[in-house]
């Protein structure tokens, strides 16, 4: 993955470097433990690492939203590659070409949008990481494509964060009009074969008993 040159990253790196210089200086020079040394250590062990941690955490959270991050696990490469493909017509790829959220299209579509949506989404992501390293890390891609599927049906609520179903243009579509209540109630999936198609070329729907299973 490439290095992000954002101001926060540079701030974190600058503070980390300054802190490291102070700490190494203390370890090498062994100065007398007076007030001046303690003030230096207060910066080296307190202020500067705290700024590094804050800026680093913000950057870390931002990094976890990127498609590049999701695609760094080999089992997600087909989905990420499809999104990167300018010729692909899949739902995910079309959303990836949106200039407002293109590079974070995985997060934009899969994030939970409730009050604690970010936390729930991050916890779900932690589960994915755990399953990857405990079960799928050495699984060949062809096998992973068959084994990995959605945990539960994709909620229309996620689509409706942007496509509210209240716009006149949306309502003008006969199919939308006839299925309006079913779409809003989640009885008809936007991302189904009969409507807009599956989001990914290798999409596998949830298994019948998937809710009881721990699967990504």
């Amino acid at each position: 993955m490439h290095f992000d040159h954002s101001p926060l990253t540079l701030l974190a790196l600058g503070c980390a470097a300054a802190s490291a210089i102070i700490l190494v200086g203390y370890l090498v020079l062994r100065p007398r433990l007076g007030a001046v040394t303690k003030v230096w250590l207060a910066f080296g062990l307190g202020v500067l690492p705290l700024v590094t941690a804050f800026a680093g955490n913000v950057q870390g959270f931002e990094a976890t939203k990127k498609r590049e991050f999701c695609g760094s696990c080999h089992v997600m490469i087909p989905h990420a590659s499809d999104s990167d493909d300018p010729a692909s017509t899949s739902l995910s790829s079309r959303h990836a070409r949106n200039k407002f959220f293109g590079e974070v299209n995985c997060y934009a579509c899969h994030a939970d949008y409730g009050m604690f949506g970010t936390v729930i989404t991050k916890l779900g992501g932690m589960r994915h990481v755990w399953l990857y390293y405990s079960e799928y890390r050495d699984t060949p891609l062809d096998e992973a494509k068959k084994a990995i599927h959605l945990l539960r049906p994709y909620p229309n609520d996620n689509c409706m964060q942007c496509h509210s179903t209240h716009a006149a243009l949306w309502d003008r579509q006969p199919d939308h009009k006839s299925s309006l209540e079913d779409v809003r109630a989640g009885r008809v999936s936007c991302a189904s074969a009969g409507c807009h198609g599956y989001a990914h070329p290798n999409f596998r729907p949830p298994e019948p008993a998937a809710h009881a299973e721990l699967r990504p």
């Binding site: 990253t9 950057q59 990094a63 990127k66 990481v129």
Partner: peptide
């Protein structure tokens, strides 16, 4: 983590 923002 800043230079190599992957999951681990």
């Amino acid at each position: 983590s800043l230079f190599d923002p992957r999951p681990l």
